[in-house]
Amino acid sequence: MGTNWKEEIISYPEGRLQLFKGGDGPPLLILHGAGGNPGWLNYHEMLSKSFTVYAPSHPGYDKSDRIPWVDSIPAVAHYYHGLILHLNLKEITLFGLSMGGWISAEMAAMNQTPFKQMILVAPVGIKPERGQIAELFTSPRETVQNLRFYDKTQVEDYENIFNRELTLEEQKIERGNREMAASWCWQPYFYNPNLQHYLRKVSLKSLIVWGKQDYIVPVECADLFHRVLVNSEVKIIDRCSHIPHAERPREFLDALTSFLKA
């Protein structure tokens, strides 16, 4: 983990927002998944060599204040459009993982002007045609952990990063994060039935990354996104479930690098 970053708490607009920020260059906005903001990881570090990386915690998540009107994924997208205006960001590379991918897609559909390109990593938001998005809210933690990875032995430092006993403070945060995810994604379950139609007008150059054996969001959804995002390409990573950056870090970083260089 590098030292090229800092954690900030900024006041915007009705509450405090936790933001990890680092690097130099054009802006890159990372939107985290339903579980919460993992902090500054290897891929943040890699991206910060070419970009100024902004990795906020969504309202109500981690150390960010809950904001009453931010009560759905489209509302989160509106919230972040406000934030990027406030920070005066332009030519942004939008980068969303899982639920953050859904937020990114909604943002692009609302107004793609502030964005240069978009990377979606196993996004939810579109209902699978054949499979189902796995049950996360009422399944035991162990079950969900097993779904997140194809082969845990591929994950560096798995026990320490993903399976250690949480402190009371961390449990409290995790509980709050689960509450936010439920309040935004309970019904319809992790998708917006209109999203595909909204995305047809998005012409951003986009990369869709997916684990071939994603046990949480079926890989068939990669094609559903690809069909409606006219300027998109798909990268499928083999031997990988829902967390490519942890399970197949090399392939994941290669995919990002080749897309961003092109």
Partner: peptide, 14 residues
Amino acid sequence: GPMEHFDPPGYRSR
């Protein structure tokens, strides 16, 4: 049943 059935996210206040 698993704890998650009796304590689903958000059912109890923070």
